[in-house]
Computed example of a mutant assay.
Amino acid sequence: MIKAKLDKGRPPTAAGSVTQEQVAKDFDRLTEIYERDINQAIAFAGMEHMFFIDKKRESIVRLAQERFGEIDKLDVLDLGCGLGAYHPGLEGAFRSLHGADVSARSVELAAERHPFVHYVNFDGVTLPYPDDSFDLAFTICVMHHVPPAQWDGFVAEMKRVLKPGGLALVYEHNPYNPATQYIVRSCDIDKDAVLLTPRKLRGLFGAAGFDEVQTRTIFSVPPKGALLTQIDSLFGHLPFGAQYYLSAIKAGPAGHAASV
């Protein structure tokens, strides 16, 4: 687990002791400069944040297609959506796209930028949706901001709002990657980050009762072009990638064909 640099805007906290309310306040405060700070932190890699956003968005669409076939009938949730950075390019891809976040300011700005998405602000504990609402729920680099004491509840809520047979996708930083450690230490918004190993994340989803729980690393090499993308995919079973994703299925029959 990694603790990034301390925030001068409030007293330091022990790793893992930050509250959900503090996380929400931090993201409200840093919303306007979030993208700039991320780009500064990853500048050494020679690519901007948008490159990694595009690749993960492509991954979400691909995994959804592998699970369900046609995806235009899916109801989809971005849990911890922030400013909705992954939503451009998804307009019309699904039947509905929803975003939920603890940062009220982020949700406000996201709604202005992406009127085709249904955004809500929530308390970080209980999602404001009925049981079995979504075919797909994804969360991208969010869980390391969730207080560890709430990890079980976060996963349980994700499962609750998924339909039987629904797909959960979680993208996270790989704590075994030195470049990732550097980026987390360099980014102000990650000052209280507690990174989850792939094994830990699989354990959380397995304990919650998900089926077909698996993880693969990504960004072992920058997937620029078809060849490097294929190489990156081949390296997915190794622990080298800068990030990784978890896929898991809520028990029950899927409304569409195939499984991840």
Rank of each mutant, 00 (worst) to 15 (best):
S96P: 04
L83V: 03
R62T: 15
D135C: 03
S103T: 08
T139N: 08
V76D: 03
G84V: 06
K55H: 06
A110K: 05
L109G: 11
F52H: 04
A100S: 12
D132V: 06
A100L: 11
S59M: 04
Q65K: 15
Y129I: 02
G80H: 03
L97P: 05
F94H: 07
D123M: 01
D123N: 13
S103H: 09
A111T: 14
D135W: 02
Q65I: 03
F116V: 10
D54W: 02
H98F: 15
V76P: 04
H87D: 12
C81R: 01
L127K: 06
F116P: 09
V142L: 07
T139P: 08
V61W: 04
S106P: 00
H145A: 12
S96T: 14
G69N: 08
P115R: 09
I71V: 15
A93D: 06
H144M: 06
G69R: 03
P128M: 01
D131E: 06
V76H: 03
L109T: 13
G82S: 08
L83F: 02
A104P: 01
F134T: 07
F138P: 08
V61N: 07
F122T: 01
L74R: 02
K73Y: 12
D123S: 04
C81L: 05
G99W: 05
T139G: 11
T139W: 06
R62G: 07
Y86K: 12
V107M: 09
P130Q: 11
H145R: 14
E108L: 05
G124I: 06
P128S: 01
L77D: 10
F68H: 05
H98K: 08
S96E: 10
H114P: 06
H118M: 11
L136T: 04
G80R: 04
A85R: 08
L63A: 07
